[in-house]
Design a binder for these strands. Sequence first.
DNA 1: ATAGGGTTACGA
DNA 2: TCGTAACCCTAT
Length: 260
Amino acid sequence: MGAPKQKWTSEEEEALRRGVLKHGAGKWRTIQKDPEFSPVLSSRSNIDLKDKWRNLSFSASGLGSRDKQRVPRPKAPSSSPSPSPQLLLLSAPNNVAEASPPEDCEKSPQDDKTPSPKLYSSMILEALGELKEPNGSEVATICNFIEIDKSYKLTDSYAKRALAPMKDPSLKKKDSAKSSKAAKGLGQSSPALDAAEAAAMKVADAEAKSHLANEHMMEVERIGKMAEETESLLELASELYERCSRGEALTILQVAHREF
DNA sequence: ATAGGGTTACGA
DNA sequence: TCGTAACCCTAT
């Protein structure tokens, strides 16, 4: 990566991501005025936030940039004339944790010869960036994301949450740090968060394994990217849980049943 | 005020 | 020299 002029610090980037997750992608002014990240983003204008978010989105989308395939206008790879959310195109990924990720066809019209397994999390983040929708769509997007990673069991998870809070099995590996952070943010562990966390970990493990089998040098780099996506996923899960707790679960169920 | 395009500067 | 990220300008 480059080390350009006024590089963004980790705190600034984190604040930006949190702001997008909270207020949604697009309300740069609101995020900048938010007293929570105002001191962090004091030296950044709303335009700066937008530009930074654009760079982040492009970096998260164009993971497989090993090919020198130069496109004069590398817009969104899944850009379609239909205004409907494209992320709903993901269908029937039952085995997510296996080494062979389901390559959807409609997703990448000009896919390079490199397989470049695209994570669902990255797709969701990309969709979030593309969709400048109000909060409702955001919840639906997050819901779909978690459902996909959870093998279509989100509603069941929430039902279990209300009836009996299941215990979370001990986490393993590097994601323990993330879990601690997420748990601290929520105050205590929740089934929904744990489910999303476990799903993210499964995808992460599959990613790592897949790359371990093929490339060794790129693995570290990929892990770094993956960690960022996992972090975003956990934050998404936190937001989702918060909204559901406030009584928006009805909307989620509605969307879930309508879409699937 | 936001989105998009274009330009500039820095690192590899 | 190329690629990426910040910066700047313009249209909606």
